[in-house]
Write a protein that binds this DNA or RNA. Structure first.
Lengths: 199, 199, 199, 199
DNA sequence: GATGAATGAGAGTTCATTCAT
DNA sequence: AATGAATGAACTCTCATTCAT
């Protein structure tokens, strides 16, 4: 089974957002000061404010960028795969694992800084997260309906699988013992067992 | 299969730590000020310092309390269960799910505030977390060695299972659609499939 | 005619408000930084915030203190005077002149920083200012009704008289050529002519 | 007595100064940022600096323009009037009232932002203000010397009358209950009473 | 055992101003 | 003539922490 592990071509961030992203990963949103973001980006503080209205704005831009990127990649992966449930499942799990392995920083922030978002942005973010979860829910439901998957608890299994993929962002290192391809292969095997995929 | 879902008897926290815990869950360590902890605990700020050396101290106490509680409960659950791999696995997964369902706040902090710990405390915390992970690793390895579990990737499966249990702390509500017993039942089913437990 | 020019016993301000008041007079509200208030009061910046919620709060306290003091003194002066229109008029003008001569700083701020007040405080302040103006309006109306005052334009005369008294705060110096008694005497003469008081 | 209430033909301000003037009236000099002036004038910030050296420069230009306009109008009004004291007094008071009614913004700034001027500009401004006051002083002194005015305190009366005229800028509205002509008429009556003009 | 008062340091943000283009 | 981008300094305000009482 040939799996495309080409690094996902995430549209690049501005140097400022890149700096903010690194800081948020390392210290968290509230643990990061505007001053260290500016220093990391090689600008003065007002130089930074020339481009972004506030620290909160940077966080919102980062979160939106991460979630829409993941969603788009997921849609693309599903569209490119065969339409049978197992192929769809493989495509989606592969996409999730790759995203969280290759794009660790945005992926990490996307679920660790939800509470740091202002109310409205938080609502929007959660809506995006739920839409992302629904992609997996639907693929699994389709597989169960087709008799391809045998899990008795599709909803919980769906959540469990998304969670295990998401958590890759917390520990995976490209220079660690597992190549990206190996990582994806193993997670596909595990995920298929979790839902009781045939074969 | 009778599963004990008695709320785990976690040794109670001081009112101050209880207040700090709630704040850390809602706003994060860096997003929480000493003043709001004091207010929540019904004390003055110096009153709080009379009991705890610093905000960092509170975090360390909370993290240690959470991790040692979980570890002790895990040991107890394993000791109380039959010694065959499946029983041990069931006991450990059940313990994890229950802990993260009943003790959401400490469980949530235990993995969301790692980076907020001072260096030494962080090292200790990570050591505890790894020890906790090793419990699952060992149970799964034993099952695989005994031919009871069929997963080809025990290490990754172990991590995946711990992760799915841990994530319960993020969404489970006692007043939601699933009773604790149902929750544990379903996660046991899913986890056993994930490792390919026999039967 | 014996006029009591005892310095009005304005309830004293806290050292912080005293400092803020001086700064606001010299530099204006927006031209005054919290730091210079703190320095003038002999405190650190947070020391100042321990007592007052914000710079705006200091301004509001000062404005309210000034306006209520003036109003109370006006009421007292009117109550202590004979009830005939001229006596009432003399009492009120004398009170106004004395207040703006002795309490130059609060008096000056009370009309120079209205636009610096937050919306609600501004509404309240204007209500107090209007109530103060109404005291003069009523005294003059009574004198006109009684045939004691002959001005054909009581409303405008009332405003003009209050204004001329108010403006004393802008130039009068206790160590200047006019003693307070002389000042009051002259303004009484002028004000009585303005409304065409009999005799 | 025919009073000319033609709106005083103040030489027009540049759009930038016009914008600055409005801002200074609404927020004060220190409460106004260069950015909001630029926005109001429909220019970029550097575009604004192309025309004016600094915010202080704008203020100085505005203040000088206001004071010289008022002085020139006063001279013109005095020159156009008959030479007897009452006619001169009427002309000057009428001019003052009209200026402060028609040119509220410059008039308001001219006395509310004195302390915001740099030292040298402040000295010049105060000299202009004193010269303006002297016009009134002289007219009143002449009337007293001629036995036309009976005030025993010409200096204070002069200040009081200028103040009452000046304060028109703070409250008069062209769309309010008083037409400009009525306003001028009433203030003339009041002012003449204040100095005890004959007849 | 508890608190009102205080503080140095630093938070996010905006200031007036300049410069390369 | 005009602007996007940049900056040092300063803004209001809050931080974690301490100390005299």
């Amino acid at each position: 089974m040939a799996i495309d592990t080409t690094p996902s071509a995430l549209t690049p961030l501005s140097p400022i957002l890149e700096a903010a992203q690194e800081c948020f990963v390392e210290q968290g949103y509230h643990g990061t000061s505007i001053r260290v973001i500016a220093a990391r980006a090689g600008l003065s503080v007002p130089g930074l404010y020339h481009h972004y209205r506030s620290k909160q704005q940077m966080l919102q831009d980062l979160m939106k960028h991460a979630m829409t990127s993941l969603y788009r990649q997921s849609e693309d992966a599903l569209a490119a795969a065969a339409s049978d449930p197992l192929a769809q499942f493989n495509a989606l799990v592969g996409c999730l694992v790759r995203f969280h392995a290759f794009e660790r920083a945005p992926a990490f922030i996307a679920y660790s800084e939800i509470r740091s978002l202002d109310e409205e942005a938080r609502r929007e973010h959660i809506a995006r997260r739920d839409a992302q979860q629904r992609l997996m829910d639907q693929v699994i439901e389709a597989g169960v309906a087709a008799g391809e998957f045998s899990t008795p608890h599709p909803t919980e299994a769906s959540r469990a699988i998304v969670t295990m993929c998401t958590s890759v962002a917390q520990w995976y290192r490209m220079d660690g013992p597992l190549t990206p391809d190996e990582l994806v292969d193993r997670y596909l095997v595990i995920a298929r067992m979790t839902i009781g995929a045939r074969g």
